[in-house]
Design a protein around this nucleic acid. Structure first.
Lengths: 199, 199
DNA sequence: TTTTCAAATGAACGGGCGTTCATTTAAATG
DNA sequence: CATTTAAATGAACGCCCGTTCATTTGAAAA
């Protein structure tokens, strides 16, 4: 049986991606079978291969799409002005981007080891480019004496780890709204780098 | 053939744990087969069941052992004195404990989802107890006006994420020694919470 | 030397894996 | 209505999985 009702391309495709993302994040890449994905989508396993070359590509496409969206979003945030403003913009963008995508974030950190060498290199390059955006802000701030930082590379990694860690405990129906979280973390970030205290 | 040379109990057992840890961290729990572990240990798959009830217990024992060691180590660190000193002690202990155990840390964050419900609850309880140790220090510091923190629970999670994130990039043969890392991160932590800047 | 038994073997169990492909279906096209 | 073709089926491929267990081995105990 095929095409039970209406043309399915452009419907099944995205559903395969969404289902794979959810299941990979929930159980791990290796623990999820193509047959499980197919069952949740509502097709047979063979049909998945109309939408992906193989299982590994399914993972890679999710991670690459995530990093591309992340970089694109940061570009759109269009950070300008003095270093402190740009740092605030980065912090708020990072939180705004990551909180609604907790599955994807978890996947991006956990399943890098399941990528082939060249696929891994691609993702690592994109991640490094993202980190470098923050590091550039920190370096500018040190140059202008707005920030006091010993080691900007370390501070970059420390801040990103701190911000990304939010996805480990945040729940949309929890004690804090996304806005409150952003406010609180911006306070922490500012104090971590600022040369002078703020009242 | 059995006992090729000398009694093997007490030798094979730990080797099974070590090998399982390394392979789980490298490839993921679900991606590693009992036969792979056995091959690296140098026995047949069946022999593993002299040392573990099943594959899941192998994972749980590793994670539980880690959390027990972590809590025990923190107790041994025996933090005393004013909040700032205790925070410094906690920070340095956390780094000292985690840096030589990067595989175990990675495993502890990635593979919680592969635990049964009750095994998961056990690990989560231990983790919460560890977080509460830090939170208690922060609360004391706020009470004594040594620290200025809006939300001590959030600050706790933020600091632990920041410190644990070191294991994602630290390499023993890298640019920074463990001591330099501890020094740099203690600087970041102090600035994040301290009520007044330090020269 | 003989006995004991912890430790390991190796075959077997039922089942699931990723992937391929000839075939069938039915919506869209002319 | 007849044709085309995108989309899905379902069986098959060879292979690996976690776990069990009767059997074998050989170091240590008697």
């Amino acid at each position: 049986m095929a095409r039970k009702q209406g043309s399915h391309a452009g419907i099944t495709g995205p559903r395969v991606q969404d289902t794979a993302l959810r299941l990979f994040a929930q159980h791990g890449f290796a623990a999820v079978s193509m047959r499980q994905i197919a069952a949740e989508v509502g097709v047979q396993a063979g049909a998945l291969y109309n939408y992906t070359a193989d299982k590994q590509s399914l993972l890679f496409d999710l991670l690459q799409g995530n990093m591309t969206d992340l970089m694109g979003g940061l570009d759109s945030a269009d950070l300008k002005g003095p270093p402190l403003s740009r740092l605030e913009g980065f912090t708020r963008f990072h939180i705004r981007y990551h909180l609604p995508r907790r599955d994807l974030v978890f996947l991006s950190y956990m399943e890098l080891r399941n990528l082939s060498e060249s696929n891994y290199a691609t993702i690592a390059r994109l991640r490094r480019a993202y980190e470098d955006r923050l590091e550039a802000i920190l370096l500018d701030g040190v140059a202008s004496a707005d920030f006091a930082i010993d080691d900007c590379r370390i501070a970059t990694l420390a801040l990103i780890a701190q911000l990304t860690g939010i996805t480990n405990w945040y729940r949309p129906d929890g004690r804090l709204s996304e806005e409150q979280v952003a406010e609180t973390y911006w306070g922490l970030v500012r104090r971590t780098v600022a040369a002078r205290s703020h009242a």
